[in-house]
């Protein structure tokens, strides 16, 4: 009898610890969000959105436009490579080839971001004489995003039932016609989700850009090479080190803007997944 009580007590104690751990994680998350939002919202001025950085203060316009330019360049490369690569892995490759591609994509995603940045510096900035530039930064971000897009595309195509392919083939479609007219449709939501999350990853990256994009306190010149670009995460990191309160405020505001954009993307995506998985519907 006493033994049973002891086991019951240890079960309860164990679960209490588990709940405490989960509570600790949630507390950390909320503390992080609250700290950044509290500091950022007080430092943020709407005029920052239309002013470029100026000395130790000013606005964020150059960084916001620069961030979007870099992510745009990255997605222009990463989306076709990743989506078509995912199509090949799912639709054409044999089981063995597919697992090799999947493995290599995962290895690539395990490469530390600073190594990718330094590789971009050695190859594009120095060897190819592009200087710190939008294109070098964009390609470094491409390497970060590519494995992610490839994997999500492949796994959402894998969820399309084989019967749908067989139906398309039975109509006399080639594999290309089947993919471009029928099979991509059910997978489109998953692919779009992957793209959005890849954009969110790209927006928040700093390390690959330090050695490739450089820094510029003017608005981007839209020149691909030989022109440095500013970006939000640089302000959030570099201006924090300055001893002036204006500079620190700009860093808080940059982190705040970044966090808001990324949270919006994340919540959009989760909301989409929520609805498409049927959990949000009234079916249950």
């Amino acid at each position: 009898m006493r033994r049973r009580r002891r086991r019951k007590v240890s079960s309860v104690v164990g679960w209490i610890f588990a709940w405490l751990a989960a509570g600790l994680v949630l507390f950390g998350l909320f503390d992080l969000l609250a700290t950044v939002v509290w500091r950022g919202a007080r430092a943020f001025r709407f005029s920052m959105l239309v002013q470029p950085t100026h000395g130790i203060a000013g606005g964020l316009e150059n960084a916001i436009i620069g961030t979007f330019e870099l992510v745009l360049i990255a997605i222009v490369f990463a989306a076709p490579l990743g989506i078509l690569g995912g199509v090949y892995t799912s639709e054409f490759a044999g089981a063995k080839t597919a697992s090799v591609i999947r493995f290599l994509a995962e290895v690539l995603s395990g490469v530390p971001s600073i190594v990718i940045g330094y590789f971009g510096y050695l190859l594009m900035v120095l060897e190819w004489h592009w200087g710190f530039s939008a294109l070098a930064g964009g390609i470094a971000l491409t390497i970060m995003m590519l494995p992610y897009i490839l994997r999500t595309t492949e796994s959402s195509l894998q969820q399309v039932p084989l019967m749908q392919r067989e139906a398309a083939w039975a109509l006399g479609m080639t594999r290309f016609q089947a993919i471009s007219r029928a099979i991509w449709r059910p997978a489109a939501g998953g692919i779009a989700t992957g793209l959005l999350l890849a954009i969110a990853i790209g927006l928040g990256e700093t390390a690959p850009l330090l050695y490739t994009a450089g820094w510029n306190s003017n608005n981007p010149s839209w020149q691909l090479t030989h022109s440095q670009v500013g970006y939000l995460t640089y302000i959030a990191w570099d201006y924090l080190d300055q001893p002036y309160p204006e500079a620190k405020n700009l860093a808080y505001a940059a982190a705040f803007v970044l966090l808001v954009i990324i949270l919006i993307i994340q919540l959009l995506v989760r909301g989409f997944v929520w609805r498409s998985s049927g959990r949000g519907g009234n079916g249950h």
Partner: peptide, 16 residues
């Protein structure tokens, strides 16, 4: 929420 935590940029975590 746990996945949201994974998506927070590392400079923001550094700021915290």
């Amino acid at each position: 929420l746990v996945e949201l935590l994974a998506g927070i940029p590392s400079v923001v975590v550094g700021l915290w």
